[in-house]
Design a protein around this nucleic acid. Sequence first.
RNA 1: GGGUCGUUAGCUCAGUUGGUUAGAGUACUACCUUGACAUGGUAGGGGUCACCGGUUCGAAUCCUGUACGACCCACCA
Length: 897
Amino acid sequence: MHPRFEDTILYYMQLSKNYTPSDTEGKWNDHWEKQRYFNSRPDGRPSFTVVIPPPNVTGVLHMGHTLNETVQDILIRNARMRGYNACWVPGSDHASIATEARVVGMLKEKGIEKSQLTRPEFMKYAYEWKDKYGGIIYDQIRRLGCSVDWERVAFTMDADYYASVIKVFVSLYEQGLIYRGARMIHWDPQAKTALSDEEVEYRDEQGRLYYVDYAIVDKSGRPTGRKVTIATQRPETIMGDTAICVNPSDPRYTDLSGLFAVVPLVHRQIPIIFDEYVDPAFGTGALKVTPAHDINDYNLGLKHGLPIIDTLNEDGTLSPAAGVFIGMERFAARNAVIKQLKVEGLINKEEDHLTRLGYSQRTHAVVEPRISTQWFVRMKALAQPALKAVTEGYIHIHPGDKFMATYKYWLENVEDWCISRQLWWGQQIPAWYAPDGTFRVAATRDEAYRLFSAPDGSRPPFGAGQLRQDGDVLDTWFSSWLWPIEVFKGITNPGNADIRYYYPTSVLVTGQDIIFFWVARMIMAGLWYSPESLPMEKRIPFRHVYFTGMVRDKQGRKMSKSLGNSPDLLALIEKYGADAVRFGIMIASPAGNDLLFDEAALEQGRNFNNKLWNAMKLVKGWETRLAASGDPTPFPVRWFENRLREARATIEQLFAEFRLSEALKTLYSLIWDDFCSWYLEWVKPGFEQPVDAMVYRRTVGFFEQLMQLLHPFMPFISEEIYHLLADRPEGDDLCVKQFVTEGAADADILAEGQLLKDVITALRDARNKAQLKPKEQVDLYIQTGLKSTYEHIGPILCKQVNASGICMPDTLPGGTLTVVLGKDKFAMVTARILDDDKQKEEMRKELQYLKGFLESVNKKLSNERFVQNAKPEVVDLERKKKDDAEAKIKILEESLT
RNA sequence: GGGUCGUUAGCUCAGUUGGUUAGAGUACUACCUUGACAUGGUAGGGGUCACCGGUUCGAAUCCUGUACGACCCACCA
């Protein structure tokens, strides 16, 4: 006996008017988990594996996550119901810089500066933060109905996971793919760390261009009276200038050869250099070169052997090397420099200038180009196979190839990846420095110490305790790129049973915004760390990538905290129910398209819940008044059986193409229109009339199948209704009920059903237009060549258009409500006199339309080239259209006279 | 500057290899509350498929170009 089924009868008697999600969702979550339906272990079935894109432990889930998790759950539940061993691994990402920035902010509010804390003290706060927000995220995932295996929760800073990251670092270093060096990198002065190129976001902004005069002197420093004006947006960097550069072909400046310029404010003498790089048309055609603070200037400096003067501290204040305004914040310093230059009369012009500024993705501080010693991954070697995996079709990207070009371009032009971060929250870089500054890379201090030994085995002249570990941590993506492997311990315990069974994962569902950060790098890592003996299709981390779009608000704006347009997921679940939230977010969300989030869609989902609930109440209500079965299978049952087969095939096809919102739309229409509006109305008995027992049994069967199809999308209500429809033995839950394959649909029966629907609609329309009240009964006469068809759909037709009965005479009675559909003509005789003129008016309109239609068809058919070139079936179709239209016109014209 | 994608009903979107005078949801209009559901029922109105040109018997669909929009990439101070 099902654990809660003893209450069913009582529960049924109390069935509420509307569906109440909060009564069922917690109950089913508990039940599914207790039955361990979501827990997966390798077995003989094929695996279907999804690893969750681990949310950052920085806060709560937003609507973008909601969309991604819903898509994943639909795929996982569908697979679970189709014979796969479905495994969905949940987890979260430590999100190094993002979390550290939030923790620092939280501490600041408490009046604690990070600089006052030791590293272990800080880590303690960070772990507390992680536990708090990780818990919130997991609760949200559960409330949404996500069928993840909670025994497989992974976190990118778990001990094993940490070890895997270190192991990968060491091995890439040993393979020469990681190096340490001084390079120009992007610096976040707020977080005081280096960033990768990908972590910088650019925004167009209105800047200002200042024209500054530099005096020209000869090589012994004597004034020449000549001056050069340069244009700059960053006057605060002039103290770092080490040259002035002009284009060698620029006639305005040829005389400057061999002369020097004097840097304003600091009065340092710098050379004039010549390089094609300078565009004579921009500004004044003269460029100040500041190698420490601009990537182009850095490259110019390298080429011309210029010194580098770093005038900024790590926090963005001016360093002693600046000589003036030391310690002043960079933007304040800019204003101070401008003011001083004006005092000295050296600024002769200012103008607005559109520019692009780089911001730190996480702290939103303006980044500084900065020369700094960091760790890098050589990307070229890793990129090659990753490119091949996608271009050669081992990994399929959905939708279509929309992102292929982007992916290809990035990999073909990829730069080395700066992976060191000057932070504490993350995996600490396993490099160990001797007192003399040399280092070795190893997973442990002892191992590193051993590496310092001379080739003859003699010990180094210092103790292991004197080794100092690199203080930096690794970029968070340097750990998450291992996610699909290490959640199955594929790096810390290679070749184990899990990794062999679950890897490669089946599909990765994620936002298109992290295609470079994560998707491309996971492919690199997957290929690099899978045994080379395996074929490509076993080394890729996933077979399909499903990109979801960005969730925006109704007005198309990005969801953000500052705009306050990002709804709270739990509040939405409270208000509409988890199924309705899932429905609402999926219904208008084709892969890769941005989704304009509108609560109206959730309302539609809630209404759909209610519709299902009431249909269940209707069907359950028949249970107590069953009559013995009469006829062979009645028409509505035969029709819906085939309609269901047809829709099932469509839905399976849409799943195969990852067109999930289309599948949901198909299902929605199947349930609401075909099942509720047509089928149930056709088989519904009159008030307090008995129901054919076989019809009841078949109807319950249909309902179950519909709930099964719906289950991946709306798991809670479908499971609830499944159990309310019948008593179920232990373990018979929709959640794990396997789909059965059925035969093909019978096209003839579907066509008859369509005819019936069309006739009903046409007759109802005529009744409406004649302003007949629903209660006014008519006598129905039909003139048709399909008498046998109308004989078996007749009773339904009568009920649906409120006719007392049907006659099929050779000629129809006059003075009636007349309807023409195809080659059939219908007449409804009413108890009262109808407005004949109005009816004729309708018929004339119809006639006019038909004549236009016929004309267009005739035009085609009289075109010889059409008849010659078009496919025969197309021509036949046109001929048929012509016949039908002519027949209908004839009937209409007869009726009018 | 380079690239990708998009433009179909008031709004959000389908429209499969070119072939019924273009479909759905939502919004809108009219009518309907006695028996599943007004979070509902029945029916209806609504589109020159962004624009110009081309290919074709035939174009929302294929091709040139234009306009507008979104996104990505790029070292022009």
